[in-house]
Design a protein around this nucleic acid. Structure first.
Lengths: 250, 250
DNA sequence: ACTTGGTAGACTGTCTACCAGGTGCCACAC
DNA sequence: GTGTGGCACCTGGTAGACAGTCTACCAAGT
């Protein structure tokens, strides 16, 4: 669950310094390395290696590995150790499906609880995102997209939805980054409609749009998948090579 | 989390029993003790105490505590240690809201993927549950209810939904057991309608019914809360003394 | 050629001991 | 009554040890 602090403390109860626990830093470092591919999928992670690599002892490494295991980044085989998780083929799909449910519900609740301030921020993000999109700044687009979705889940006011969505999102982004470029323009049009629905407090509409939005992402994933792996498909290939927009090879 | 293997192994490749890691047993033991109240909410959990209590060393205890922290059972304050989580007032509500989203989506997918076999099992559970309900066997009713919901999430075929739902469910059941008796009969009528919708493959209807079903549970919770509220609260003092919306008396 | 048995090395899971630093509490001083 | 200093307790992290187990590899038997 990763309950990122945000302990809803009374404002101003800010504890000055937080000497981050070592295990936390190790956790961050490892996810980083997993995401950027330094630690390849399927690789056996040896505790003492990581320990000496990061300049700490085994304990923090172990604790980080167990958390990584709980969150599905690595698989812990008893008596053998941790291997970087290698995703099954249907896994991205399932993640995207879960995300659809979580974000759709978040959008509904966001519409219910939206304040003027929130809406203003949303509009701003839409503007910024569209600008990035038009200027071809992929990195900025992706980041702003993340910010927008994140803000919406935050607005739901439901810490569990926030938590789950964040978890799912991180995983999705790990083994499925390259979708962003494919459906940029349409995506931001949808965002605009979504923000409008939220600003009007139309819960059903917001939920509906968000659902379609994430479903689109899933479709885009499948098309990309089909396009980049025409090699040995398992019988499903015959379906429809019909309409496939395949620019942007990355 | 603890995603059950389910590694798509060839059927009958049943591996022999593997000695559970100690940390696992410790984790189980602690959740058990938290749920049944042996470890009261807010209590400071001292590693060495637990260790000697369970007859293990600090290490497995620490690892278990970390996991409990990640999953929200305890709060880990750096430098001080673990305290059994004391739920905020709005927490159950948020859990139930999250559950509504997760289970509703599960029901939708279950309707999509249901096999004859699944439906048969669902019907059976409905029958058993109703019987328990009518005979006043609360324990049996609760258990069967759990089984039914669990089976439906399983049927969704989405391991993330299963995972999240299980997590949420466990938490809900911790600080909010007493709902079952309140709305027994209606609950099983709804179950029947739900199973019917699933058997007919009517996704929207299944999702809709499940949503209403869990919403009912939430309402029941609120009513119960309002009814038993006038009494004084137990030891939730830790919460911020500020914003205390009390006395709704619906 | 294929299985069986044995051996060796590597790593995990757990334990013990130890230490530095932070936290909460209490008693004492004002 | 309210600070303040001190003390005991506890955590977070380190180091080393050891048994159990997993993998790999090699050699001998069939």
């Amino acid at each position: 669950m990763t309950t990122m602090s945000a302990d809803a403390e009374p404002v101003g109860a800010r504890h000055v310094k937080r000497p981050t626990p070592l295990r936390e830093s190790v956790y961050e470092a490892l996810t980083e390395m997993i995401i950027d591919g330094t630690l390849e999928r399927g690789r056996h992670l040896v505790e003492v290696e990581l320990a000496s690599l990061l300049g700490v002892s085994r304990q923090p490494v172990r604790e980080a590995l167990q958390r990584l295991n709980n969150e599905g980044w690595v698989d812990l085989r008893p008596g053998f150790g941790a291997m970087v998780h290698v995703p099954a083929e249907d896994e991205v799909d399932q993640l995207l499906a879960a995300r659809a449910a979580l974000e759709s519900e978040s959008a509904r609740l966001a519409a219910r609880h939206a304040t003027k301030d929130d809406v203003a921020k949303l509009r701003e993000l839409c503007k910024v995102g569209t600008a990035f999109q038009e200027s071809g700044d992929i990195d900025g687009t992706v980041r702003t997209n993340g910010d927008l979705h994140n803000l919406i889940t935050q607005m739901s006011g439901n810490r569990f939805l926030v938590d789950f969505a964040a978890q799912v999102d991180r995983r999705v982004r790990w083994y499925y980054t390259p979708v962003a470029p494919v459906r940029g323009a349409a995506s931001w049009r949808e965002h605009n409609r979504l923000v409008k629905a939220i600003s009007e407090g139309d819960e059903d509409k917001a939920a509906q749009i968000m659902r379609e939005h994430t479903e689109q992402t899933r479709k885009a994933y499948h098309e990309l998948q089909a396009a980049s792996a025409p090699a040995e498909e398992t019988a499903t290939a015959a379906a429809s090579p019909a309409r496939r927009r395949r620019r942007s090879t990355i």
